[in-house]
Amino acid sequence: MPDHSTLKGRTAFVSGSGQNIGRGIAVRLAEAGANVVVNGSRDRDACEDTAERVRAAGTEALVVMGDMGSAADVDRVAAEALDRFGRIDILVNNAARRPHKPFLETTDADWAAVIDVALTGSFRTARAFLPGMVENGWGRIVNFAGMKAMRGYFEGAPISAGKHGVWGLTKALSREFAGKGITANVVSPGQIRKDGVDADDPARTASIPAGVMGRSDDIAAVVAFLASPEAGFVTGQMIAVNGGEET
């Protein structure tokens, strides 16, 4: 059974938490005792469903819709979250865009749309919530990469560039804020089955030594550990959750 006291009194912000990995993370943190700010850019009903699952775990939830690629939206979302809870102790930057397009067909707008969410959005949320973490002498930042992004995404140069940038940002934050009780780490998922899909894709499991695709709960468990007090000496790390695939 989940430990309902590990994060009691803490508040988490999880971007892109209307479905799949983000939803799993939000619920897992709630099961550990954290209040959760649920965020999505389009599907409010999905975010409200996540919020209901958070409340069912026994903690408070707030839904704040907004595009993490928009500076104005990030400012507004952060203000709403801080107005409701006073501070954010755990920041999980899960929101992302993953369009596929040949490199020579990629426009400036295509490039910016991906980078603005994955990298610049992570910078903006960290800038918004770090002051409270510093003031309280405790904080957890968990950013996301991705196995394919770190290898080099086929027909996805902006994705790889953005996620490598997130890795650099995370390492910089880990060094600057380690002495203030704040950790910053990256989780790099492998091939994860989407929620509601009952069977693995054999064409995809063939390359996974574990023989199965991962699930949202596998990612959520690692994030919950990184968010916990027990992970206070783990910072500046990239943790691959991929069933043994080469990263």
Rank of each mutant, 00 (worst) to 15 (best):
V63E: 02
D89W: 12
E60Y: 11
I115N: 03
D116L: 01
R87Q: 14
L91P: 11
P99T: 10
A81V: 14
N93Q: 13
P102H: 04
F103L: 07
E105Q: 06
V114K: 04
A113F: 06
A95S: 01
A72F: 09
G69N: 02
D110P: 00
A95P: 02
A109T: 02
G69C: 00
D73E: 11
F85S: 09
P99Y: 04
A72H: 11
V117S: 03
R87T: 15
L119N: 00
T106H: 06
A109L: 04
I90W: 10
F123Q: 12
T120W: 07
D108N: 11
A71E: 13
G66M: 10
E60T: 15
A61T: 03
V117A: 00
L82T: 08
L62K: 12
D73I: 12
A72S: 11
A118D: 15
G121T: 05
V74K: 14
P102Q: 00
G66H: 07
I88C: 06
L91G: 11
F103R: 08
D110Y: 01
A95L: 01
L119H: 02
D89G: 00
F85W: 05
V63T: 03
F103V: 03
A81Q: 09
D116T: 00
F85P: 09
F123L: 15
F123C: 07
A112P: 07
E105Y: 01
A112H: 09
S122M: 10
V77G: 08
S70M: 06
V74N: 14
R84V: 03
V92I: 15
A95Y: 10
L62D: 05
T106L: 09
A96Y: 09
V64A: 15
L91Q: 14
A79L: 12
A72N: 15
S70R: 08
K101M: 09
D116C: 01
R124T: 13
R87M: 07
T59Y: 11
R124W: 12
D75V: 14
T120S: 06
A118R: 03
T106R: 04
S122C: 09
V114E: 04
G121F: 00
N94C: 00
I115M: 03
G121I: 02
L119W: 06
A78F: 14
V114M: 04
N93R: 11
R87K: 12
V114H: 01
L104K: 06
D116M: 05
D83E: 13
E60H: 15
R98C: 08
T107K: 06
S122E: 13
R98L: 08
I88M: 13
A112I: 09
V114L: 05
D73W: 14
D67L: 01
V77R: 04
E60R: 15
D73Q: 13
G69M: 06
R87F: 09
A118I: 07
R84D: 05
L119C: 06
A81Y: 04
A79T: 14
S70H: 02
